[in-house]
Amino acid sequence: MLHDLSAGTPLQYVLGYAYFAGHRLTVAPGVLIPRPETEELIELILQHPESRSSQRLLDVGTGSGCIAYALTAALPEVSQSVALEVSSEAAPIAEANFEALRKATGREVYLWKHDLFALLEEHTPPTPPLDLIVSNPPYIHPEEAEEMTPQVLLHEPHLALFAPEASPIAYYIALAELVAQGYLRSGGNLWVELNPLYATATEEAMLERIGRRHAKTELIHDLSGKVRFLHLTYCPAE
Rank of each mutant, 00 (worst) to 15 (best):
R213P: 01
C235L: 09
L159W: 06
I45A: 07
L25A: 11
Y183F: 12
Y171A: 15
G30M: 03
G16E: 08
V82D: 08
A7R: 13
A237F: 03
A68K: 09
A180T: 02
E146D: 06
S54T: 03
Q47I: 00
G16K: 07
Q47K: 02
S186R: 06
A100I: 09
P49F: 09
L219N: 00
V14N: 14
E95C: 14
L119S: 11
L132G: 10
P138G: 08
L44K: 02
T233I: 00
E85S: 15
L232G: 09
S53G: 02
A160W: 05
Y171M: 13
S79M: 01
E146K: 13
P157D: 01
E77W: 04
A145C: 04
E108F: 10
A145E: 12
P164T: 00
V192N: 06
A7N: 10
T105N: 11
P196L: 07
H155M: 05
E40L: 05
F229A: 12
A100D: 15
R52F: 04
M148L: 15
S186G: 09
R107K: 15
E40K: 09
P236G: 04
H123M: 00
Y13F: 15
Y19T: 10
L111S: 02
R228I: 00
R209I: 05
Y19I: 01
L161Y: 10
N97S: 14
V82I: 15
H155K: 08
A74R: 13
A94S: 12
L41V: 13
K103I: 05
L194R: 08
A160T: 01
P92C: 10
Y198E: 12
E121I: 03
T202R: 03
E89I: 02
H221G: 02
G225P: 01
F162C: 04
L11N: 10
S6L: 14
T233G: 05
P10N: 10
P36F: 14
L132W: 06
A160L: 08
L75R: 07
L32H: 01
P29N: 01
N189I: 02
R209Y: 08
L5I: 06
S6V: 00
V109H: 06
A28D: 15
E39M: 13
G22V: 06
Y171V: 04
L161V: 07
L159Q: 14
T124H: 10
R102A: 15
L219Q: 01
N189Q: 08
G30C: 01
G63D: 09
L32I: 01
L230S: 03
S79W: 00
E208S: 13
V14T: 15
S186K: 01
V31S: 12
A237N: 11
V109Y: 11
G182C: 07
P125I: 00
H3P: 00
L161S: 11
R52D: 05
L130Y: 14
L232E: 07
T202P: 09
E147G: 11
P92A: 13
G182V: 00
E144R: 08
L116T: 00
